[in-house]
């Protein structure tokens, strides 16, 4: 296969080293996720050739590791777009195109992104969403084989984010190269990506489909990204002994003791009670309300205990239970709601 993009890169910034190996097919949209400092931006800069890297990088069957950024067939859209402030939108897009055909081609790209009428505006006169589209047009105009998007929606307000996301969805669908999309937003992962590459401390911790990450995240951080609690644990006597304290029982347990797993509990599966519940839930433990936050019409409650969990309850339930910081409650989770990911 010559269309495959093979990545096996090692890059260092100071004492921090990032090592990523992955193989991508044309049309792949890879969400690159991970906590701050995981090495996402460093990985992207290494791909673009902006920092030195060792290993292998073949794009469409061609080894480009020793090439300068200009000749890697890699397009890079940094955070906030970084449009040249002294050039119009049109000249920004035409910057990477040579010759007489540059400007007409740039205009066509702006038209395709629905912002053709803004061609003669300077970046200062563009909204955040418009600027992001110009930056996208500028990268796409050079017809790269690999497109790097570094948090393209992070700096936008909610409305612009929806608009640019729709644009991205349309154009990434048409794009037959590989897209690497750094994001912190699970909505981006679910609506734009076909695949997830999760980094932590400079290494790949998960490389799977989007469904793979939602159903079987391999780190607590990934579980939290998808709205679940994740606990490192070890099987012991038919239960899960959590590394951070506490015990959980799952309906579906791996065989044997001493198996390292991640126990995943969706936040909406955690029930909160004022008194000790009498129901059938097999996991019941006392806890104290540490923090309350309203997220998307529901209340996200941090319950301190063994284990400490996040619970999503309705605003009505929160009011009914009289939840407030410092209130003592009981948490319960059905065994069928605990997913066990063998590590």
């Amino acid at each position: 296969m010559t269309n495959v993009t093979t990545i096996d890169l090692r890059a260092s910034v100071g004492t921090f080293t990032v090592h990523v190996a992955a193989e991508c097919k044309p049309g792949d949209v890879v969400a690159v996720v991970g906590p701050n400092g995981a090495g996402k931006s460093t990985f992207l800069r290494a791909l673009a050739g902006l920092i030195p890297a060792t290993g292998t990088l073949t794009v469409g069957g061609v080894d480009v590791l020793d090439r300068p950024p200009a000749r890697r067939h890699v397009g890079w859209v940094p955070q906030d777009g970084a449009l040249f402030p002294h050039l119009t939108a049109l000249d920004n897009v035409a910057f990477g195109l040579r010759g007489r055909q540059g400007r007409p081609a740039a205009q066509r790209w702006l038209d395709r992104l629905g912002i053709g009428d803004l061609a003669h505006r300077r970046p200062a006169a563009l909204s955040g969403g418009q600027a992001q589209k110009v930056a996208l047009a500028r990268a796409l105009a050079r017809e790269p084989r690999v497109l790097l998007l570094d948090e393209p929606l992070a700096a936008l307000d909610v409305e612009a984010r929806t608009d640019v996301r729709r644009s991205l969805r349309a154009h990434l669908g048409d794009f037959d190269g590989v897209t690497m999309l750094v994001t912190h937003d699970p909505v981006d992962v679910m609506t734009l990506a076909s695949r997830v590459l999760a980094l932590d401390a400079g290494a790949v911790v998960q490389d799977s489909t989007v469904t793979g990450v939602t159903t079987a995240p391999r780190t607590p951080w990934l579980a939290a990204l998808m709205g679940s609690n994740g606990f490192y644990a070890r099987t012991a006597a038919g239960a899960l002994a959590l590394d951070g304290g506490g015990v959980l029982v799952a309906a579906d347990m791996p065989a044997g003791d001493g198996v390292d797993v991640l126990a995943v509990v969706p936040a909406h599966a955690v029930a909160v009670h004022r008194g000790r519940p009498e129901g059938s839930a097999r996991n019941v433990w006392p806890a104290t309300v540490r923090d309350l936050a309203v997220v998307g019409g529901r209340v996200r409650v941090t319950l301190g205990g063994a284990p400490t969990v996040l619970a999503d309850v309705t605003t009505a339930a929160a009011a009914d239970l009289g939840l407030a910081e410092g209130v003592d409650v009981w948490a319960s989770v059905k065994a069928t709601e605990v997913t066990v990911v063998v590590l």
Partner: peptide
């Protein structure tokens, strides 16, 4: 911001052209 230099580089601009145009 040095990202402007970096963007210019990924857009095929050499150091000299980047200096005079960006």
């Amino acid at each position: 911001d040095e990202r402007y230099d970096d963007v210019a580089a990924t857009l095929g601009s050499g150091t000299t052209r980047t200096f005079f145009r960006v």
